[in-house]
Nucleic acid binder design. Structure first.
Lengths: 206, 206
DNA sequence: ACTTTGACCGACTCGTCGGTTTGTAACATT
DNA sequence: AATGTTACAAACCGACGAGTCGGTCAAAGT
């Protein structure tokens, strides 16, 4: 019976991975269940055996894949105790590097889905907003810790800085999709470095 | 015959305005021609009398409405000869204010459409990228003029700064769609002000 | 040996959407 | 008055997509 469950989970996982790939590439509404099933050489029956609906399927993708990826790419990497700006820089440098190679970086995936579902599917929007909130809360607390530990200027507005970082990151991804992604990444990172420098503590703790 | 032409253009204009409104709200692929025609109490025949296809229709919307709005909201407002940072701040403050009221601000519209068409419709992507390029070129030249006129630090990287401004603006819109738009606008503008301050000329011209 | 169940197949329904075709009232032209 | 043209309306077509449903079949349970 464990065997059974394993097979079930393996199939569901395959569906979700391929589903996210295609939803990301073509958008949710512009990707049919059949597209996904064709790639996996599975049938409609298989799909509706495991999932209630396309929406249910997508929500499970969010919970199983999106949330975890955001954790591993945007949250955990900034949680060390080194210099806060450095950690943030490294994290987003990394995230944008996958973007340059046209892979899925999940900050961008999030942004795409938000603009696709905004005003159209409140249920899914709720799940997406949850992820954004987690990301934001984490960034804010990292910045506040940076203040405590003396890397960041005590007068910096943690919420504002977090919002600005998230915004610029999500936006630059949109601008990287067609034009000189690598050059834009470099330019962007320079400016981000300058911005972070401007909120660093000028009188470092002893 | 001038009368005729006027009627023709009036109908086409009505279609485009309503079309953009719905395309923005629901996305291009998720808005049917019939949705638009229903709102205008027109029929399919009317639509295909004036336009070759849905794609042709959308491209005309880009050329007639989007381009002009981007000019009037994001380009012309920063072209004065006052302090460059101030002009930029005022311009984006204004653009975000319409966003707070859930109206269309066209930087965001652009970003939405780019993520919807990216990788799916190269023809439309070309038109959208043209607008982005115009916006970018203009911002760069404004910043360079700011250097000439002594408002901006001569060492600032105009392309980088422009990219950073565009990115953060497009990104913050995504983050404003559901959560506390007005508070986020305020926070964002504070950070943008700080960023622009950090590239202002510290030894102003005499 | 048998029954049950988990995993899956594939044909079908029903609605939607882009696009076509045919018709027609109003107006302009000759 | 007869004819053509403009600007639509209405019915229709073919495709595609979500979801359903009866059936299959191997493995597990008994």
């Amino acid at each position: 019976m464990m065997q059974k469950n394993l097979k079930r989970m393996a199939t569901m996982q395959r569906m979700q991975v391929t589903g996210l790939e295609l939803f990301y590439k073509n958008g949710y509404y512009n990707t049919s269940i059949d597209d996904i099933l064709k790639k996996l050489e599975l049938s409609k029956g298989a799909f509706y055996y495991h999932y209630e609906s396309k929406e249910d399927f997508f929500i499970q993708i969010i919970e199983n894949l999106l949330v975890r990826k955001v954790y591993s790419m945007l949250i955990e990497p900034v949680e060390g105790h080194e210099n806060t700006s450095d950690l943030i820089m490294q994290c987003y440098d990394n995230a944008l590097e996958t973007a340059v190679h046209n892979e899925m970086d999940f900050g961008f995936v999030l942004g795409n889905f938000i603009s696709e579902f905004n005003g159209r599917n409140p249920k899914i929007m709720k799940h997406l907003n949850d992820i954004i909130r987690i990301w934001e809360v984490n960034l804010v607390s990292v910045i506040q810790r940076g203040k405590f530990e003396g890397h960041i200027d005590r007068h910096a507005d943690a919420e504002g800085v977090a919002l600005f970082i998230m915004s610029s990151f999500m936006g630059v991804r949109t601008l990287m999709v067609e034009t000189a992604p690598s050059a834009r990444k470099y330019r962007f990172m320079s400016q981000l470095r300058m911005f972070l420098k401007s909120i660093e503590n000028k009188q470092p703790a002893l």
